[in-house]
């Protein structure tokens, strides 16, 4: 660069070049989103409004059949309710299991931290399907868990497999790492001196937890519950493999409509209702949790 030139003369094109570079770098991502998200989204929405072609079963044509939405809700509301109930219980259980574990790793893990975290993720190296299938053995009618629970007369049906309990257990197990990791990330960031300061200011260990550790870990709790609840609510593998036909979730309904009945409009409408319901739940939840104040 020639030093005699005023700095602005050469800086302006450089800035413009930098600006262009940013757009160029964004291009692959934007293209990806357009092709694999935006366009399918619109297509799916249009499919959800299609009408059957008269006289040709299994054929659908363009339409504005909002009735598909009415059917999907009137016919499948039990599956919706069950999905959110199962996912909700699984999320709560995962939180109860994950919080002490993440707390232990973050505060007491010391030099074992990384190893412990790897152990948390390690099961995910095996196939999701296989791991869920393995639960059929764990919860089998003649297995140790079921017999123990039966001996204690804790099971109304006398079995675990092919009941809602098995589905919830599977969901909890499968999505547990998604709860542990964000919780760990949030807890690990907490300055230990804040807990000391709370103790110095007359807070007992449990009060210090309630007033300092818990509120400061809220971002992790919110992230963890969302990352568990959202995929769990849409899941169908767990209900398929571990539940009976009475324990079907909305994912199963979508799957059956798509693959077995080839009723694409109903399946698409169900997907959209699920999406909308999750969005509404998530937004109310984030509002209530008030996480924006924590940052």
């Amino acid at each position: 660069m020639a030093p005699v030139l005023p700095a602005t003369a050469s800086a302006a094109p450089a800035a413009r070049r930098r600006g262009r570079a940013a757009y160029v770098l964004l291009l692959p991502g934007m293209t990806w989103l357009a092709v694999f998200f935006a366009i399918p989204f619109v297509t799916l929405f249009m499919t959800s409004l299609q009408q059957p072609v008269p006289g040709k079963s299994g054929k659908y044509a363009f339409g504005l059949e909002f009735g598909n939405y009415v059917t999907s809700m009137t016919e499948y509301w039990p599956q919706f309710v069950r999905s959110f109930a199962y996912a909700g219980i699984a999320t709560l259980l995962a939180l109860l299991i994950a919080y002490p574990l993440a707390y232990f790793i973050a505060f007491k893990g010391g030099r074992w931290r990384s190893l412990l975290l790897v152990l948390v993720i390690a099961p995910s190296f095996a196939s999701f399907l296989l791991r869920t299938y393995a639960w059929r053995t764990i919860l089998a009618d003649d297995g140790p868990i079921t017999s123990t629970l039966n001996a204690l007369h804790l099971l109304p049906d006398g079995r675990v497999l092919n009941t809602g309990i098995a589905v919830v257990a599977g969901l909890t197990y499968n999505f547990l790492p998604f709860m542990i990791l964000p919780l760990y990330a949030a807890l690990e960031k907490i300055d230990h001196r804040l807990i000391e300061a709370a103790g110095d200011l007359y807070a007992s260990a449990s009060t210090a937890f309630r007033k300092v550790t818990w509120p400061l870990s809220m971002p992790g709790v919110v992230a963890g519950t969302l990352l568990t609840f959202i995929p769990a609510a849409g899941d169908y593998i767990n209900a398929e493999l571990l539940g009976s036909t009475k324990d079907r979730m909305i994912g199963n309904a979508i799957q059956t409509n798509f693959i077995e009945f080839r009723d694409y409009p109903t399946a698409s409408a169900l997907s959209f209702v699920l999406m909308a319901a999750i969005l509404i739940l998530v937004f109310t939840y984030i509002r209530r949790a008030g996480t924006e104040e924590l940052v």
Partner: peptide, 20 residues
Amino acid sequence: LKAYRRPVNTVFQSYALFPH
């Protein structure tokens, strides 16, 4: 005595104010 039972208070290095 535990810290929270002592008639003593501390101004911590880098303050340790509760951010929330």
